[in-house]
Write a protein that binds this DNA or RNA. Sequence first.
DNA 1: GCCATTTGCCTAAAGGCATTAGGCTGCTGC
DNA 2: GCAGCAGCCTAATGCCTTTAGGCAAATGGC
Lengths: 189, 189
Amino acid sequence: MARAGLNTERLTRAGAELADEVGFDQVTVSALARRFDVKVASLYSHVASSQDLKTRIALFALDELAGRAAEALAGRSGKQALAAFAGVYRDYARDHPGRYAATQLRLDPETAAASAGRRHTELARAILRGYDLAEPEHTHAVRLLGSVVHGYLSLELGGAFSHSAPAPEQSWPRIVDALDALLRNWPAS
Amino acid sequence: MARAGLNTERLTRAGAELADEVGFDQVTVSALARRFDVKVASLYSHVASSQDLKTRIALFALDELAGRAAEALAGRSGKQALAAFAGVYRDYARDHPGRYAATQLRLDPETAAASAGRRHTELARAILRGYDLAEPEHTHAVRLLGSVVHGYLSLELGGAFSHSAPAPEQSWPRIVDALDALLRNWPAS
DNA sequence: GCCATTTGCCTAAAGGCATTAGGCTGCTGC
DNA sequence: GCAGCAGCCTAATGCCTTTAGGCAAATGGC
């Protein structure tokens, strides 16, 4: 009987692709087994559970996205950096909706601590170096930045903007402009 | 055999409570049947499917939340209105996490059109009347506002802020300050 | 008050996913 | 060449969804 050559990493990657195709919450051990033309039970040698599989996909996506963001930030600062950073997230969410959804999976504390989550925060914090914010405001600004980007993409992917003009494409650059303006004019506390 | 007195509305409300207790994606026809001490199949006279149940909970939550937001906005304007509006969303998300999650359910176009979704947009738009924005910018500002609030709550509920100081409680008022500042200083296009 | 009809809940059954236990076999290294 | 491991399989259980068909409780016209 020919072997399929499964392993945890291949399953994780295939799971990410599957997520992009059918949606992250449709990712199932069964569906993944079908994709490899293998019986369901066979996957359990490589992933502990359905939850484990999803967690691996989430960590994979978080890492991949952090990598792209870091690349986009290299050599840029100020509004350029801001726009590039936001653009990477948006492109990722559009090109890989399932993986993007995976990044929102709630992770338990230790897993989260070991994830690329912190890298995302650090990257956002790096953008602030191009603006003149007092140190104690950095955390708030990072959270705002993350909220806007994540909120926008989440609403856009959810179709919240698709039933009113103008198209989301028109709003996005204005949102980036607004964020830039806000960071240049951060209110005193 | 005594009858349980089920009907679509009671099921929807109980489903909303269940969602708050166990999480929206744990809401299941079976769990709801157990809650009423009734056999699973019995629910199918009142809801068409699991999907239908979830949609009804989402519509219920959307409506309830719009009602609270409208109440909070009454008689307020400017930053007061902004803070009240954001506060309502945040309180709702914290008090009713399952229902809040339900509001993010992706609805098909017709259902979405018939939902309270539009009321949410109108309320956000009403807040802008207290600021001096050119009309064509309103849509962008509404989307930004929605993105920030939704994004923040989504990240906060997801625990994204819970592993770094300071606590989300500290950031929230600063975010509202920042939004207010941004709306007063909206960048020219 | 009586019965016909509707309505509400039930039993039964099929199909899908998750997960565990235990078995067979192709591969690897000595 | 073979011992042992690793990788995939069969089998079985339990839970969830959904449909079909049945019986009994409520309802309303008489």
